[in-house]
Design a protein around this nucleic acid. Sequence first.
DNA 1: CATAAGCAGATTGGATCCAATCTGCAATAT
DNA 2: ATATTGCAGATTGGATCCAATCTGCTTATG
Lengths: 225, 225
Amino acid sequence: MTLNLKATNLGATASASDLIFEALREAIVEGELKDGDLLRQDQIATMFNVSRIPVREALARLEEQGLATNQRYKGAVVSSLSLDEIDEMFEFRALLEAEVIRRSVLNISAETLAEASRFAEAFAQETDSNQWARLNRLFHYTLYRDSNRPYHLQVISSALDKIARYLRAQLVLTSGIERARREHAGILDAAMARDSDRAAELTRQHILGAGRSLIGFLQVERAAK
Amino acid sequence: MTLNLKATNLGATASASDLIFEALREAIVEGELKDGDLLRQDQIATMFNVSRIPVREALARLEEQGLATNQRYKGAVVSSLSLDEIDEMFEFRALLEAEVIRRSVLNISAETLAEASRFAEAFAQETDSNQWARLNRLFHYTLYRDSNRPYHLQVISSALDKIARYLRAQLVLTSGIERARREHAGILDAAMARDSDRAAELTRQHILGAGRSLIGFLQVERAAK
DNA sequence: CATAAGCAGATTGGATCCAATCTGCAATAT
DNA sequence: ATATTGCAGATTGGATCCAATCTGCTTATG
């Protein structure tokens, strides 16, 4: 008799520390926790109804990811990025994402193209600004899927995590959305034509343009303080 | 009166967890801990004469860095990379390091060039194989120094950490050293001529070549098992 | 009145203890 | 004899407790 179950790896079930880490990570990425916010072990432990032990493990992992910084005996705070650092992140993403989409388009499937097309459409139609970041991410990541470069994707994701909360503010407050729609259409068109170099160059420009726009926005915002 | 001290940030002094993390990281990177080796909390705690609490924080951070993997209630083991994963790491490094050296050579200082030259020489003269990896890293990182891209460098460093122990074995057992000497000379030459594009392309080929060599080496080695 | 000293509460880092789970071996059943 | 069951020791995850350090306020001092 052969067992035919949809088995899940129970050895990899989430510990308290895992759940807390994921919750904090999401809160930072989504911007619910702001730059410089204090992350008090006791407060977080109470919220999750656990002791401070798993909280400290989660904070250690956040620090390793660059999303929080710890000062001994003082506590952890949400990391903040300088304009120079944000600028560098966009150059970094432009380099990596251009390469990844180039590889992906080289052997992209019809299904992947169809799915990316649906996300581009959903992004263009969406009126709820809270959904923009999610749909934007889905669109791009779908186009990267067939690159067969899991480590590249993981690093890209980690880089995006570090700047997502700044991008969110900018998308909502500037005309970034209309421009993103046009540029997505261009990238999708290149992908459908299997023109990997064009898709790469458009992606590169798309990211660098968003970066310039965000830097300009933040310069004004930060100068106001 | 103005104080003129070389002040260190005492708020950032190392905790037990920091020291243990660093020691384990180095042991994995240097290959003293092998792929699949079990990392027992109790054993490590005894070695450092501490409780298991800081050890667990160190292990959580190692996992976040991709150097160890944890199975709940079973323990942590040193991560191992498949050939495909190693292959991808070299493509990743080639892409990033070519870009970083290009930027660096664009405004490289005479001092930096002199220092890189000294490391190239030291690498070429060194007979102790244990020193090769260190001098190789110093040579390349010196050439990257003036790129003004700290995040890129950090990611490169993290990627190199994940494959350094495989590279070490290969450098010792093949004729990789003689070739590395020649290629280093070529890269240094391009940097001294301020030819950023040539330096970038040579670096790219240097890394991809080392990758092909290592993959070939590992294919034989792993097939033997 | 300004400044330094010191004390109390808050907070973090780590040790010890307990509960949940795993692993390998012995006992048992077929 | 082989396969299953059950138990003991080992190991991890988490809770509780203690020590080290920080912070802000109060008090002392010139």
